[in-house]
């Protein structure tokens, strides 16, 4: 399933990184601890988090993640948006909680 399909099915907002909407999503990873994601997320995972600063995109890029999904209505910082566009990594958002969004994504692709 592609990022764009997840956006549609989970009614996510696309903040930035539109260039990467065609990326394939292979599973997901839910965490707000950056070293946890660095050590344990898998390539192609969609990362679900409330962390919205630009280092999130650096990690997503270094670990070849397919997208970052901000939960609980979190809005990205301006430099996070800029970095996401530069790296072509979709930065998505939802008003749902981390628990709810993780459950829905799991039901979809888990």
């Amino acid at each position: 399933m592609k990022v764009t399909d997840i956006v549609e099915k989970l009614e996510l907002k696309v903040f930035s990184g539109h260039e990467g909407l065609g990326k394939e999503v292979c599973g997901g990873y839910t965490s707000d601890l950056l070293s946890d994601v660095m050590g344990h997320a898998g390539a192609g995972n969609a990362w679900i988090t409330i962390q919205s600063h630009r280092n999130v995109i650096a990690i997503a890029s270094l670990r070849d993640l397919s997208a970052v999904i901000l939960t609980c209505g979190e809005k990205p910082a301006d430099d996070t948006v800029a970095q996401s566009n530069e790296e072509g990594i979709p930065l998505l958002g939802t008003g749902l909680s981390t628990f709810e969004l993780s459950g829905k994504l799991y039901a979809l692709i888990g």
């Binding site: 950056l34 070293s35 946890d36 660095m38 050590g39 988090t49 962390q51 280092n55």
Partner: peptide, 11 residues
């Protein structure tokens, strides 16, 4: 920011 969880050196 989500850093400083004491996982860096073990990683």
């Amino acid at each position: 920011m989500g850093f400083g969880a004491g996982m860096g050196l073990p990683n």
